[in-house]
Every structure is written in structure tokens, then in C-alpha cells.
Design a protein around this nucleic acid. Structure first.
Lengths: 127, 127
DNA sequence: CTGAATCCCTGCCGATACTG
DNA sequence: CAGTATCGGCAGGGATTCAG
């Protein structure tokens, strides 16, 4: 998103992205939101924060998530460096999905999202 | 999103949303992501974190943002309890937009998004 | 100056069917 | 078991136009 102004302790004072005037994929905020973007994404991440999972374990944990979207999400999270795919030889095919170290660091991010969302006057139906 | 598992200090241990198996608007994570959802949204919030703004000041700060999307975003942020609209009498019409206290608390959230996005092996083009 | 209404195009997501 | 291919519906967002 291209911020700054957020009030960082000390760092990133002159990051050019902090003053962008249009959405750009290079902005750190955009990068994170892109990693988490789309329906089901955060639930998949939550599931993997609990431990590594197979494809069918993920389907079992999220029963109404379609194959297409699940593989879309796993690919998206792989591209973002959040999830690692571990294929093991033999039959039947066994594949394990696990968070990378970088992926694990989404924990505090999701916590911040959780905290804000549970913290206040959320909607304002009318006034 | 419906988490928990994120590793909270102590709170919210048995929040039912923590174990949801499908996306639900009631989940705190979803609430926050909904508030920030959509193109331009975080940039509008960043601008307001710097201080209150008029409609045309926002347009000036974000020159390629269309009227439709700007008013959509301001309405969305209003519904989410992030932004407050302050209409002042007289002519020409003067309206000021400012963050609510709850809106100001998005600062740390955006900071967390910024930090993760600037922090790691972001994409993995191929390997 | 501050918006709301409309139009159209694009991309997301869900369901279904098929492959290795 | 672990996915990919295809299709259709719907919502998001940009440009333009109109209104208070």
C-alpha cells in the first residue's frame, strides 16, 4: 500500500513506497495483502499454522472449499513464499504442505488483523 | 478469517470463530480484511493517517483514483467505522474526512502488513 | 466543491468433469 | 491421493455523465 506515516519505531523513514500515489505491487503492504488475497486464503494459512497438512487433510478441514480454489490458493501461497510443497515418493502419492519460515511470520500479521477486527465498533449500520 | 492458533498471548482462547471451517463475515480477521478490501483502500487510509482531508485533497493526493471508487471507498470505510465524515455548513460545500479512534488503530495493522511485506523472500518466480 | 448513477469489461470463485 | 481443464455467474472497478 505504500505507506509510512504509520509511525514506525525508527526504520524505513524514506522508503519511496511510503509516498506512492497509486497502487503498486512493489509496495510492502500490497505484497502482504496479495499473499493473503482471495477467499479461503487466510483459512488455509490458519490450518497450516497448526501444522503441516496433506491435500486431503486440508479438504477435510475446509469441506466446502473446492479443488480448484484449494489448488489455486496453494499455488498462490507458494508463489508468495508462504507455503512449501513436499512431495514424497511411492504410491499412493503423498504430498505435504507446510509453511516456510517466512510463512510462519504471518502469525503476528493475522493476530494484528484479528485484534483490530475484534476490538471495536465494527460496523455502523446507520449511525 | 476465523483463526486462533496464531499464538495469542493469552486472550481469546475459545473464540468460536477461531475454528470456523468456511469464510464468514463475523470472523475478526474477515472484518479487518473487509475494511481494507479493494484497490486504493489502504492508500486512502494512509492519507487520512496523515491528517484529515477534504474530498478534493484526497483526489489531489491520489490523482488517478476515480470519483466512483473514491466515494465507494469512503462509504466502505464509513460503514466499517474507520472514517468519519464532517460536513460543514456554508457555500461552497466543505466536507472533511477524518479517521475515527478505531480507524487510527489501523496504524499498527498496516505496520504489520508493511513489515511482513518488506521482510522476506517475497516472491519465488520459479525456485 | 462534493458526490451519486450508469455502463461495460474483467477477473474471481464455485461446480463439474477429467487425468496421473 | 492429488490435482488440472473448462464453463458460467457475479461482483469489483474504471470512465463518463449528471446532480445538490
Amino acid at each position: 500500500m505504500t505507506h509510512r506515516t504509520v509511525g514506525h519505531p525508527a526504520g524505513l523513514p524514506d522508503d519511496p513506497h511510503a509516498n506512492v500515489t497509486a497502487p503498486t505491487p512493489a509496495c510492502p503492504v500490497e505484497i502482504t495483502l496479495a499473499a493473503l488475497h482471495g477467499r479461503w486464503t487466510t483459512l488455509v494459512v490458519r490450518e497450516l499454522l497448526r501444522g503441516d497438512r496433506s491435500y486431503s487433510e486440508l479438504r477435510a478441514a475446509l469441506p466446502t472449499l473446492s479443488d480448484k480454489v484449494l489448488s489455486d490458493r496453494l499455488a498462490q501461497l507458494g508463489e508468495a513464499g508462504v507455503v512449501e510443497r513436499d512431495r514424497r515418493p511411492g504410491w499412493p502419492p503423498r504430498v505435504r504442505y507446510a509453511l516456510t519460515p517466512h510463512g510462519h511470520r504471518l502469525g503476528p500479521v493475522l493476530q494484528a488483523l484479528w485484534d483490530w477486527g475484534s476490538g471495536g465498533p465494527e460496523p455502523r449500520g446507520r449511525g
